[in-house]
Simulated assay, not measured.
Amino acid sequence: MATDRNPVETPRGETVYVDRADAERGAKGPFFVAYTTSEADHRWGFWCANCESADNAMDTMGRIECNVCGNIRKPDEWDAAHE
């Protein structure tokens, strides 16, 4: 079975496997799910497709923001009181 998981190197020199078939929508481009192995045994984090970076963060509400290009995925749920 063919996979869409491509190996990429993080800024720390780690190899992670980006699954181009599993994505979250971002404002500037998708965030692809990345795994620690090509078999997708353990989820590592997200890969920003807009700038090809692993330097991003997710908060407790599900918001993902790329620290390089500012690409952002809005949270699953939000409350105006948090703004």
Rank of each mutant, 00 (worst) to 15 (best):
M1H: 01
T3S: 13
T3Y: 03
T3R: 03
T3N: 10
T3I: 00
D4S: 11
D4P: 00
D4H: 05
D4C: 01
R5Y: 01
N6K: 14
N6S: 12
P7H: 11
V8E: 14
E9V: 15
E9C: 06
E9G: 02
P11K: 01
P11S: 04
G13F: 08
E14L: 09
E14K: 15
E14I: 01
T15M: 04
D19E: 09
D19A: 15
D19K: 05
R20S: 07
A21R: 14
D22P: 00
A23T: 12
A23K: 09
E24C: 06
G26W: 01
G29I: 03
G29K: 00
G29V: 02
F32T: 00
V33Q: 11
V33I: 05
V33T: 13
Y35Q: 04
Y35H: 10
T36P: 00
S38I: 10
A40V: 04
A40R: 06
A40M: 02
R43N: 02
R43V: 08
R43W: 06
W44Y: 14
G45Q: 04
F46I: 03
F46S: 09
W47Q: 01
C48R: 03
A49G: 10
C51D: 14
E52M: 12
S53H: 08
S53K: 04
S53M: 01
S53W: 01
A54D: 02
A57N: 11
A57T: 11
M61P: 00
G62E: 09
R63G: 08
R63N: 06
I64F: 07
E65W: 10
E65Q: 13
C66T: 10
C66I: 06
N67V: 00
C69Q: 09
G70V: 09
G70F: 11
N71I: 02
I72Y: 05
K74L: 14
P75R: 04
P75S: 10
P75L: 04
P75Q: 05
D76E: 11
E77F: 07
E77A: 03
E77M: 03
E77S: 08
W78T: 12
D79C: 11
D79A: 08
D79H: 15
D79Y: 10
A80R: 05
A80Y: 05
A80I: 11
A81T: 09
A81V: 06
A81S: 14
A81G: 09
E83G: 08
E83V: 12
E83F: 13
